[in-house]
Every structure is written in C-alpha cells, then in structure tokens.
C-alpha cells in the first residue's frame, strides 16, 4: 500500500548521487554538507572562484548540473586540502573537485568556463605520461603555452630558457624501460573504467 508518488521528473538528489558515486575512496560525505562555509573561507583561490565550494555544493543539491559543470571552481582548486582537513563534516572536498573536473570534461561544459584551458593543461601533461611514463616539463610548457597563451609564450619561454640554462629542464623526454607494461596497465584501467560506468569507482555503493 504505497502512497501514490507525484508526477515523474528527475529525482531531486539525482545529480548529487551521481557525484557521490563517481568519487573514489569510500564515503565522500557530500550529503552531509551543512553549508557552514569552512571550505569557502579556507580556499586559497576562493576569491577568484565563480562559486565557493560551499556554494557549488548547494547547487549540486539543487540539481543545477550544467551551471555546476560550467563553473571555474573545480579548475581553480589547488589541491591544498585545507578544506578537507577543516571540514566539520569530514567531506572529501578535494576529491569531489576532481570528480567535477572529470564530469565537466565528459559533458564538454568546461569550454564555457573561465578556466577553459585548464583541462588541456591536464591532458597535455598526461599525454607525456602515457607516452614516456614520466612528465616532461619543456614539452608541456611549449605545447600548452603555444596553443593557449601565444601572447605570453615568449615571456614563458624566457623562464624556460632560464630553466634550461640552470640545468633544471631536460631538452628531450625520458622514457621508462617498462613503457609497454605501463601502457598495458593503463589500457586495461581505461577499459575497466569504461565498463564500470566510466567514472564510478567506489563511492556510495
């Protein structure tokens, strides 16, 4: 004798549930947010974010998926973990920011955010890791900056040259011996990730 439910629509917490499910490493506690603002107050780049983390969590709760994924907030996260250690509700805020980045890339919405270049920086970085097993600063700097900041690239190049002169930058990338082994592992991981709902890795199960 279940009482009749009112007409269908997206369940109010659907987006929040999606975020929680896609955040790895056990309980993210996102649902426990009491909107106290400790995260927003602690965030080093808080003044430059379009929404403070707390505000973003309220938006997640309200199901404002597009607005959330278009926000520059996750891209401005510096991974300092201040919010995470200070949060009185033990919410895994930094991990949730990574989740939102992945979702934004998947939905293609980041391109409309003021941090539109950020994913390309990450992608350029991981390209080198995928191909060599190591990061490669010179390649990263030149490829990323020439593509996105051609105007300031010259000044950056100055710093890059300085790095080279100081012996702090390699001119050619290093490749690990077991690159094939690593690539096999990464390929398998990508395949499993896709099977397992792309991004879902052990949030609330």
């Amino acid at each position: 004798m279940v009482a009749q439910r009112s007409a269908a629509g997206p369940a109010p917490g659907a987006f929040m549930d999606e975020v929680i499910a896609a955040t790895p490493g056990g309980a993210s506690h996102l649902e426990l947010c009491v909107q106290c603002g400790t995260c927003g107050g602690s965030c080093p780049s808080g003044p430059d974010m379009e929404h403070t983390p707390r505000h973003l969590f309220a938006m997640i709760r309200a199901g404002m998926k597009e607005e959330v994924l278009r926000s520059n907030t996750p891209w401005y996260c510096v991974s300092c973990y201040y919010c995470m250690v200070r949060c009185p509700q033990e919410i895994h805020i930094t991990d949730i920011m990574y989740t939102l980045k992945r979702m934004a890339i998947k939905e293609g919405l980041y391109r409309e955010s003021s941090a539109a270049d950020a994913p390309d920086f990450s992608e350029t970085f991981i390209d080198f890791v995928n191909n060599y097993g190591r990061s490669f600063e010179l390649g990263l700097a030149t490829r990323y900056h020439l593509r996105h900041h051609p105007l300031t690239a010259v000044r950056k190049a100055g710093m890059g040259l300085g790095m080279v002169r100081k012996g702090r930058m390699d001119l050619t990338p290093k490749r690990i011996n077991g690159i094939e082994q690593l690539q096999a592992i990464l390929a398998k991981a990508r395949e499993l990730g896709a099977e397992d709902g792309a991004i879902s890795q052990g949030g609330r199960q």
Partner: peptide, 14 residues
C-alpha cells in the same frame, strides 16, 4: 594533480 582530473582508474593504476 593532473591525471586524476581526466580519468580515475588509470590515475590510480599509474
């Protein structure tokens, strides 16, 4: 801080 922004499982496997 970059790999995890793109893909979870490969980042962990890496």
């Amino acid at each position: 801080t970059e790999y995890i922004a793109i893909d979870v499982l490969p980042a962990y496997a890496l």
